[in-house]
């Protein structure tokens, strides 16, 4: 009967030993304590994962600052040089020689970044982008005479970067002369901190090409621009920013004057070989472009822009507001009289 009622009556159980019990108990307690520490320890304790306000887990942006790329001024050296007549290379050399020659600005072993304006995928003749011949001649000059270690060319265009660099002829020019093109991608931007800037104190900046760079040269075309009247040397730095640039137009003059303090370039070169007189900054028709015969090089972008506005774009009305603002922010002096040396 019994065996029928309890079929496993003869079953022998295997109890865990005291030793095992204690071991398991200690392990469980240790794990609970560790978990408890991580979860409950105050935020400033080491290894604490606690986040009372929810702010600890927010992504942190670590802004960086750009160094000053200018070289010290020297007595008797003009601020701005203008080269006229001859091929692009000759003009460029004349302009640079007027301000002390390239070797005054570039030392052997420098890593130089050139920032052309490659904003649109247009053929060079439409004047919407920097003349590739200048880029080619400049890179050669930097590598051969300036004995720079490396020359980089970077821009963040409005249209597809690959196509803009290809169609504007800048990529070919750069590669032929021995430079290297840096294209922007989504990982290439970091937040730049610009002390004193009113609107872009912290803004995503195309940082990758700036690694180890110690000289920066902006090479900008001279273009008409509806909203801020003209896009020249200062406005060119727009192309190093990322993020929502389309908000800039809500206060464009302030932005452009901010750009003038965002970066302090070694040199600014204005490409006055093709002037986009109207329909800027995109252009699109050869009739918008006026051929000219000027290349400017200098260390005061404010004065250069003022001169180019009056003499290349031939605007006699008042200067763009951003130049006055830039002057206020200390990026240069508008009054260019007596600071220009022209080599014809």
């Amino acid at each position: 009967m019994g065996s029928k009622k309890y079929p496993h009556a003869d079953y022998q159980k295997e109890p865990i030993s005291r030793r095992e019990f204690i071991k398991q108990g200690v392990a469980v307690a240790a794990m609970s304590a560790a978990a408890g520490y991580l979860m409950l320890a105050p935020e400033n304790y080491p290894l604490s994962l606690r986040d009372v306000t929810g702010l600890r887990s927010q992504p942190k942006e670590k802004p960086f600052q750009l160094p000053d790329f200018r070289v010290p001024k020297e007595a008797g050296v003009f601020d701005i040089g203008i080269g006229r007549n001859g091929s692009v290379g000759v003009k460029l050399r004349k302009a640079l020689d007027a301000i002390g020659g390239i070797t005054r600005y570039i030392k052997p072993g420098d890593v130089v970044l050139i920032k052309p304006n490659v904003a649109f995928d247009r053929p060079p003749m439409l004047g919407a982008t920097t003349n590739p011949e200048i880029i080619e001649e400049l890179i050669r000059l930097l590598l051969v005479e300036g004995r720079a270690r490396e020359v980089r060319v970077a821009d963040n265009p409005i249209e597809s970067p690959v196509d803009c660099f290809a169609k504007s002829g800048i990529r070919l020019a750069t590669e032929r002369a021995g430079g290297k093109v840096y294209l922007p991608d989504s990982n290439a931007f970091e937040i730049l901190y610009t002390p004193g800037a009113t609107l872009i104190e912290q803004w995503p900046f195309f940082k990758r090409p700036f690694q180890n760079v110690n000289k920066v040269i902006g090479v900008a075309p001279v273009k008409d621009h509806n909203l801020c009247y003209a896009s020249m040397g200062i406005k060119n730095w727009y192309g190093l920013l990322g993020g929502r640039r389309n908000q800039f137009h809500q206060n464009i003059h302030e932005i452009v004057s901010d750009l003038s303090i965002m970066i302090k370039p070694t040199l600014t070169i204005l490409d006055g070989t093709r002037i986009l007189m109207k329909n800027g900054p995109t252009g699109g028709d050869p009739s918008d472009v006026k051929p000219a015969d000027v290349i400017m090089a200098g260390v005061d972008p404010v004065a250069m822009d003022a001169w180019a506005f009056e003499n290349l774009l031939e605007r006699k009305e008042k200067l763009p507001e951003y130049l006055y603002k830039a002057e206020q922010k200390g990026s240069g002096k508008i009054d260019f009289r007596g600071r220009i040396k022209e080599v014809v």
Partner: peptide, 21 residues
């Protein structure tokens, strides 16, 4: 923005690629 909010803008005019715009 200019039509509805009294804020200057015209990015659209700037980037319009045809000539005349």
């Amino acid at each position: 923005l200019p039509w509805a909010n009294q804020i200057p803008c015209v990015v659209c005019e700037e980037v319009c690629p045809v000539s005349p715009k």
